[in-house]
Nucleic acid binder design. Structure first.
Lengths: 206, 206
DNA sequence: GCACCCTTTCTACAGCTGTAGAAGCGGCAT
DNA sequence: ATGCCGCTTCTACAGCTGTAGAAAGGGTGC
């Protein structure tokens, strides 16, 4: 059974992706989720509470993806990297990351857009940053991976890697890359992303 | 003389940086710019017009910086790279870029935050993207620079470079890097950014 | 049955927002 | 000075938003 909390927060995520934070209102969530007016307001009395729930939901979805990544369930698209941490084949990691990014651009587009909106929002509401933990898991993985690959400062390099990969994603999601890069969901796009990530990896793994 | 248009749009930029797009209302701009209530509404009758003016102002400021970059006026902080396009010393370019990024994180922070908010907004209002031309100049420069450095596909590599650099900036501005990275404005931060950019450059210039 | 509690739904209301028109004001040409 | 025109300021108003409290419903244990 899908809890009502999930229904509400998922609708909120969709709204934020479609219209930005400004579109996030109690009544709009009700409408979007086809719930009676007032429902969202009853569950989350203040707007702040609603936003926090939304962000928490994003974090929960990520956590679920991390779990799912351990299982061999490839019919469900996972938005977390499923590479073994010990892998030192940088090209394979690049390919997996390229495919992962492409998935965020297609099926995961809504979540990705909502996420960036929330990260920006966290600038004025720091508590959101703690809930979201944006890229924390990815950073840990990148550090470990770069350490295994023999980077001199895997800590720093891992952070740089995640920031740059996030930049590639954001560019194609909202920036100029949305127009200039190959269309998401295509092999060409995956190849392009993979090439960029591969260059990054090889550069940072020293 | 500072035109009233500039006063209004600058106040709008500050507002968006501080409170996000949601804080951008006609009356809030009036208050922020200490203008009589109704002024902003008279100049930009609709909210859409106000946003477009804001975005146009961001583009104008960038254009002004590009001009200023040609002059030897280093008392005015320029937010555009001032490297000669023909330069092939990648390490020097990396250092300049690192310093540039650090400037965006300190003095240029307001503009940078407003810019990202607008890029995200452009997702649902494509006309904004055309006005803003986010990173267009930077992309042109990066392509030329990488071509001079002998990259096999300078077009693609330049786009990747700009996207990654943008990612580094965004991470420190709003993401986790805001907490984990060295504080903006310090030599350590410039060094850290320079190192990341240098790795990027060397990797992409092939 | 009925009293109780929790969930859900409805309604109220003050304040804010977007938008437009009216009023005021200064200068310029006649 | 007079009438006109643009810029500026003020005011009105309908609709939306955030928030809270009141009503309705439905199940459980007595």
């Amino acid at each position: 059974m899908v809890t009502r909390y999930a229904v509400i927060t998922d609708a909120a995520i969709a709204l934020v992706a479609e219209q930005g934070m400004r579109g996030l209102t109690h009544r709009a969530v009700d409408a979007r989720a086809a719930l009676p007016t007032g429902t969202t307001s009853a569950y989350y009395r203040t707007r702040k509470a609603l936003i926090e729930a939304l962000v928490q939901r994003l974090a929960d979805l990520d956590a679920a993806d991390l779990q799912a990544g351990d299982l061999p369930a490839d019919d469900v698209p996972a938005y977390a990297p499923s590479m073994p941490l010990s892998d030192t084949d940088l090209d394979a990691i690049a390919a997996a990351t390229g495919a992962l990014l492409d998935r965020w651009l297609t099926d995961g587009r809504t979540r990705a857009l909502a996420r960036y909106a929330c990260v920006l929002e966290a600038t004025h509401h720091p508590e959101l940053r703690d809930i979201l933990g944006h890229g924390t898991a990815a950073r840990a993985q990148a550090r470990a991976m770069l350490a295994a690959a023999g980077a001199t400062d895997p800590q720093r390099a891992g952070d740089h890697f995640v920031a740059c990969v996030d930049g590639l994603l954001f560019d194609r999601l909202a920036g100029a890359g949305a127009l200039t890069a190959p269309p998401p969901g295509t092999a060409r796009n995956r190849a392009d992303l993979t090439a960029a990530v591969r260059a990054l990896l090889h550069a940072l793994a020293r």
